[in-house]
């Protein structure tokens, strides 16, 4: 996997067809979709997403935003990792090699390159690991990468994901809510432990946190990172209409003190935000 850097400014997206190369079940409800799509392979960056049309008909109607999980510009190949959660993703799982998918992308603002020498701490909840694997692949060389990967159960910890993280040079720590594998409890407990170990070693900085997962997990991650003084970037997930910033459907509260409006748009202003840029709801 080779990932380039995202140019500043609004991303240039295209509406393109991707030819299915591979549809592989990688977990109980999780699939890896490999597509021939040279433009996305060339232009996609870690943390960016594609807006995928699921099926040809009018129902389900809207596209589904999915993070880029892998790119290979040389082969013109992109990969998406997704979980079947509803009718749209169920249709996606029915795609077979040789079929075409209608895609818009790459969309959104991805992760920034961490400063040279800084450690990269990835905090993943469930399928939130999908946009974090690219970050390890893109920027893992020459730095410490600590991947904290959490899920509800052992079955939802995907071997394919762990293999890629290890290949990218990451130290992987696992947590499950039911305790069936790794440390029992939320993945943020692992982050708390990592921060404590660094503090015990007399180190206060030198890490950047990239996190993706459920809202409560991100909120806790942001709080822990802030108390440790580690810069923290969150990759948010929201229901989307257009995916390009036109419909204002994917609003997320901005941090209360942030100039420029009460809401940000996940699709266009994100999906990756510095933790201080966003607020919380519920």
């Amino acid at each position: 996997m080779q990932w380039g850097e995202q140019a500043p400014g609004r991303p240039l997206w295209r509406q393109v067809l991707g030819r299915v190369l591979e549809q592989r079940q990688v977990g109980p409800n999780s699939y890896l979709l490999g597509l021939q799509q040279p433009w996305l392979a060339e232009a996609g960056r870690p943390g960016q997403f594609v807006h995928v049309r699921c099926g040809q008909g009018r129902d389900p109607l809207l596209r589904r935003p999915l993070s880029l999980f892998g790119v290979d510009p040389g082969e013109g190949r992109v990969e998406l990792l997704y979980q079947v959660v509803g009718r749209g993703t169920a249709l996606l799982s029915g795609l077979r090699p040789g079929m075409d998918v209608d895609l818009m992308g790459p969309l959104g603002r991805g992760f920034p390159r961490p400063p040279d020498g800084e450690g990269l701490c990835l905090v993943a909840g469930g399928l939130g690991v999908a946009p974090l694997v690219p970050a390890a692949q893109a920027w893992g060389a020459g730095r410490r990468v600590l991947a904290l990967v959490g899920a509800d159960t052992a079955a939802e910890l995907l071997p394919e994901v762990q293999r890629r993280l290890v290949e990218a040079g990451a130290e992987v720590q696992l947590a499950t809510m039911d305790g069936s594998r790794g440390t029992p409890g939320p993945v943020t407990d692992l982050l708390e432990g990592a921060i404590a170990r660094e503090a015990d070693a007399g180190r206060t900085g030198g890490w950047v946190v990239f996190a993706c997962g459920p809202s409560a997990m991100l909120r806790r991650t942001a709080a822990l990172a802030q108390s440790a003084g580690w810069p923290c970037y969150l990759c948010l997930e929201a229901r989307m209409g257009c995916g390009v910033g036109a419909c204002a459907g994917c609003a997320w509260p901005a941090a209360p003190d942030r100039p420029g409006g009460r809401f940000v748009r996940v699709c266009r202003d994100g999906p990756v935000f510095l933790a201080q840029e966003v607020g919380w709801w519920e």
Partner: peptide
């Protein structure tokens, strides 16, 4: 500023916003 999220929900052959 607009309404609080969520602002969109998919409906059968439609969208509620």
């Amino acid at each position: 500023p607009g309404n609080p999220p969520p602002r969109v929900a998919e409906m059968p052959a439609g969208m509620l916003n």
